[in-house]
């Protein structure tokens, strides 16, 4: 059984990558298991300056999922490059995915450039899809022209492959995906969270201090799968599937729909061993389904 795959020309021991924002900078998980089992790790979305993020409550629950309005809390690109990435390198030996966010074109370019120079960064993941910040994030990812503009500007400076992480909060995901591909993106990651909200019935007010939050977890899987499928039908560049993955079967389903690698997000939060357990369960699931090489199934359903 072969669970190896490839992402934008770089080999992956397996397709499983903990998703940005659910795995910190790796340190929180290092005592739970040896992180080197993971295909890669996508680090917390990083901006130019340090950010505290939104006021609390930032977390709400819903049926089969959750909402978050963290608002990109991170220590800023300098601290990430000087401290977090070297620290992560001590415990995780493979290339990582650097999730980059910004509030302006300049910021995206500057952060991506700095990150792409770091040795253990394998890919730049352009987060043009964070729904929890105003005047940035998602506003770049819901307009095809903006998304293309950021992509080509970052491509021009990045020394590493650029993967654009798309927002599902759009009418036609393929329009944005194609625009990014034309602008030179090396890959796509879909999906980020869906915009949602909850009320506090006792207070009769929105539960999250930010009012709205990003919806993720088991419940979003079919939406993510549909978007991967639609995008894989029209795009040539590789896709990282993400959204509601919690089992090896989910991974296989996403790969059949066209994903070359798969990110596991919220599942890590409710079971800190989720990513490891999924990797360990892959061979057994593959055997059941008669799959020899995982790469054979990428996009077979298209």
């Amino acid at each position: 059984m072969n669970i190896k795959t490839e992402l934008c020309g770089l080999p992956l021991d397996n397709p499983i990558i903990p998703a940005s924002g659910t795995f910190g900078f790796g340190q929180e998980y290092k005592d739970f298991y040896d992180l080197n089992i993971l295909g890669s790790i996508s680090i917390k979305g990083t901006t130019r300056e340090a950010r505290f993020g939104n006021p609390t409550p930032r977390i709400a629950e819903c049926k089969a999922g959750m909402l978050n309005a963290v608002g990109l809390q991170n220590p800023g690109v300098k601290a990430v490059v000087d401290i977090e990435l070297p620290e992560l390198k001590k415990i995780y030996l493979k290339p990582i995915v650097a999730n980059v966010c910004g509030f302006s074109l300049d910021e995206y370019v500057e952060v991506a450039q700095l990150m792409s120079e770091v040795e253990n960064v394998g890919w730049i993941e352009l987060n043009v899809s964070c729904p929890n910040v105003k005047h940035g994030g998602m506003s770049f990812g819901t307009d095809a022209c903006c998304a293309a503009e950021v992509t080509s500007a970052v491509k021009a400076v990045s020394k590493k492959p650029v993967i654009v992480k798309l927002s599902p909060n759009v009418t036609d995901i393929t329009e944005i995906a194609l625009a990014c591909q034309e602008a030179g993106a090396d890959g796509l990651c879909l999906i980020n969270t869906l915009l949602g909200m909850r009320l506090d019935l006792k207070n009769r007010k929105p539960l999250l201090a930010n009012v709205t939050g990003g919806f993720s977890g088991d419940a979003v899987f079919p939406i993510a799968l549909r978007m991967i499928y639609q995008t894989a039908k029209v795009c040539k560049i590789p896709i990282i599937g993400c959204g509601g993955v919690s089992t090896a079967r989910d991974v296989i389903e996403m790969m059949m729909a066209g994903a070359s690698a798969v990110q596991v997000g919220s599942a890590n939060l409710i079971n800190p061993f989720a990513s490891k357990e999924i990797i360990e369960a892959m061979p057994k699931e593959m055997k059941k389904l008669g799959i020899q090489n995982l790469t054979d199934i990428i996009g077979v359903a298209l």
Binding site: G21, T22, F23, G24, E28, Y29, K44, F52, G53, T56, P57, R58, I59, A60, M66, N68, V70, Q73, S266, N268, L269, I270, P272
Partner: peptide, 17 residues
């Protein structure tokens, strides 16, 4: 006390100053 996503430091859901 704060509303928590994970309880072990993984999600930044519970930050306070």
């Amino acid at each position: 006390e704060e509303r928590m996503g994970c309880g072990f430091g993984g999600c930044m859901g519970c930050s306070h100053k």
